[in-house]
Amino acid sequence: MTPITEVEGRRLALTNLEKVIHPATGTTKGEIVHYYAVAADAILPHLRDRPVSFLRYPDGPDGQLFFTKNPPPGTPDWVRTAPVPRSEDPKARQVVIDDLASLVWAANLVVEFHTPQWRAEEPAVADRIVFDLDPGAPATIAECCEVALWLRDRLAQDGLQAYAKTSGSKGLHLAVPLEPTPSEQVSAYAKSLAVEGEAALPKLVLHRMARALRPGKVFVDHSQNAAAKTTATPYTLRARREPAVSAPVTWEEVEQGRGDGAGLVFRLSDIAPRLERYGDLFGPLEDRDRAGHLP
């Protein structure tokens, strides 16, 4: 019998709650749904008003993974959708996760959450800059920490304050709150800093994705500032064998991570204690008073 629960007045059918999704730890679908419900106050501000894309992994990371921007079949009519600009489909709409009921509904699908750098009411007008620091083996997250610290200091020279989070995979993400600015301008600025980083740290930084150049270096992926691109949302679980989370971190943790990066892996069970200790370290991204201007 499918359990039915009520969340904020919405009736939800939660399916296969005992199914193991993350095999390395035996983490079940029920534990995933519970995680999102507990972390809702932290993750919802970063989902709200942003069209969401889903990476679905209903059979775990070893099963079929599929990325979707369209509302999944069976999306309840009370889940908000918003029009999004797509050249191939001018009538396209995407889900927007605004409330706890919508979050629990989406969690029941077993998804990663990915969001653009703009809000639904202002498509292609970014209110943040992002950099995805992706290490090429044998480089690790430790090298990403070195690059993150350089970027932090360089952004500060332009009056911009950066915040860091783990990607939940191999690297780090940096984000900067920004006064609403056309995505094209943000993309150009982000690329210029990636190019500058490669010039300043040529043995460590790449601004191009070329695979042949990747070993031992950190690719500073600036492309996620393009209007059509998305980035893993803060606090989302990732489709990994362990229930890894894209978790905001302090700059002290980034500085310590320059050693071996061992402390920069966070799982589902780590997040509630971190929120208790630090609150939402990415909260300033939603504070317009902290938003910067491009130089």
Rank of each mutant, 00 (worst) to 15 (best):
R119V: 06
V125Q: 09
V79Y: 07
G257L: 04
W105S: 00
R240T: 00
S102N: 04
T230W: 03
D134K: 05
G259K: 13
D134T: 02
R241N: 01
A39L: 01
Q185N: 09
K165Q: 10
K191G: 03
V95S: 08
L213C: 12
D89H: 14
Y35P: 02
R80A: 14
R274S: 00
R238Q: 09
N225D: 09
A227S: 15
E143L: 05
E143N: 03
E8I: 04
V52H: 06
L204E: 10
G197W: 14
G60W: 01
R50W: 13
G257S: 04
D49G: 09
G9L: 08
T2I: 14
A232V: 09
A200I: 12
R86H: 02
L103V: 11
R50A: 06
Q185K: 13
V249A: 07
R274Q: 10
N70F: 09
E8R: 04
H173P: 04
L55D: 11
A188G: 08
T5H: 07
A139H: 06
V20R: 08
L17R: 15
L109E: 15
A199C: 03
Y189I: 04
G197S: 14
G9P: 00
L103Q: 09
L268Q: 07
Y35G: 04
N70S: 15
N16P: 06
H222W: 15
Q224L: 15
V218D: 13
E88H: 09
R50F: 10
Q185G: 00
A232H: 02
V104L: 09
R93L: 00
A82R: 09
A139Y: 01
D158C: 06
R80M: 10
K91I: 04
E253W: 05
G171H: 11
L100Y: 06
V52F: 07
R241G: 07
N70T: 15
P135E: 07
K217C: 06
T81A: 06
D89M: 08
V7Y: 03
Y235P: 15
H222T: 03
I43E: 05
L281H: 04
G136K: 06
A262M: 05
D62K: 14
P90Y: 03
R80G: 09
K165W: 02
